[in-house]
Amino acid sequence: LTELETIYVTKEHLQETDVVRAVYRVLKNCPSVALKKKAKCLLSKWKA
């Protein structure tokens, strides 16, 4: 997740890969609050 925060991701990348699905899975299933927060921030950033 940290690496995903530092790289530039285009909408095309998100549509062509399962990155969003994987990050969403972390948000829903990971017991770590810190990782959930990171995943939520990434998804919000990409949605904007």
Rank of each mutant, 00 (worst) to 15 (best):
T2Y: 10
K45Q: 01
Q15F: 07
K11P: 08
K45D: 04
P31W: 15
N29I: 08
K28A: 04
W46F: 10
A39P: 00
C41K: 14
T6N: 04
A39T: 04
T17V: 04
V9T: 12
S32N: 11
L4C: 04
N29K: 10
K38A: 12
Y8V: 11
L27Q: 02
E12W: 02
E16A: 11
V19W: 11
T6M: 09
N29C: 11
K45T: 02
S32C: 15
Q15D: 06
V23F: 11
C41V: 12
C41L: 12
R21K: 07
V9G: 12
V9F: 12
T6S: 13
N29M: 12
L42D: 00
P31Y: 11
K37Y: 03
A48I: 06
V19I: 09
S44G: 09
L1R: 08
R25I: 01
V23M: 10
E5T: 00
V33G: 11
A39N: 03
L43S: 00
L43F: 12
R25Y: 01
K37L: 04
E3H: 02
E3S: 08
V19M: 12
A34K: 13
K37V: 02
E16P: 11
K28V: 09
E3T: 04
A22E: 06
V26S: 07
V19A: 11
V23A: 04
L1Q: 14
K36H: 02
E5N: 03
K11Y: 03
P31L: 15
V26G: 09
V19G: 09
L42I: 06
V19L: 09
P31E: 05
K45E: 01
L42Y: 02
K28F: 07
V20I: 07
V9E: 15
E3C: 13
C41M: 07
K11N: 03
K47W: 12
V33C: 12
A34D: 13
L27W: 10
V33A: 11
L42M: 08
L27G: 01
A22V: 05
A22N: 09
Y8Q: 15
K36L: 09
K37E: 07
E5P: 02
I7H: 07
Q15A: 10
N29S: 08
I7L: 10
A22T: 10
T17D: 05
L42S: 01
T10G: 08
A48R: 12
Y24N: 05
L43D: 01
T6D: 12
E16D: 12
T17E: 06
L14A: 14
K28N: 04
A39E: 00
T17R: 09
K36F: 11
S32T: 11
A34Q: 04
V33W: 09
E5L: 06
K11M: 07
A34F: 06
V9D: 15
A39G: 03
W46D: 00
R25C: 00
N29P: 00
E12H: 03
N29R: 13
I7T: 14
L35R: 03
V33F: 15
K36M: 12
Q15E: 11
S44K: 06
V33I: 09
C41Y: 03
L42V: 05
A39R: 00
T6Y: 04
I7K: 15
K36W: 13
K36T: 05
V9N: 14
E5D: 08
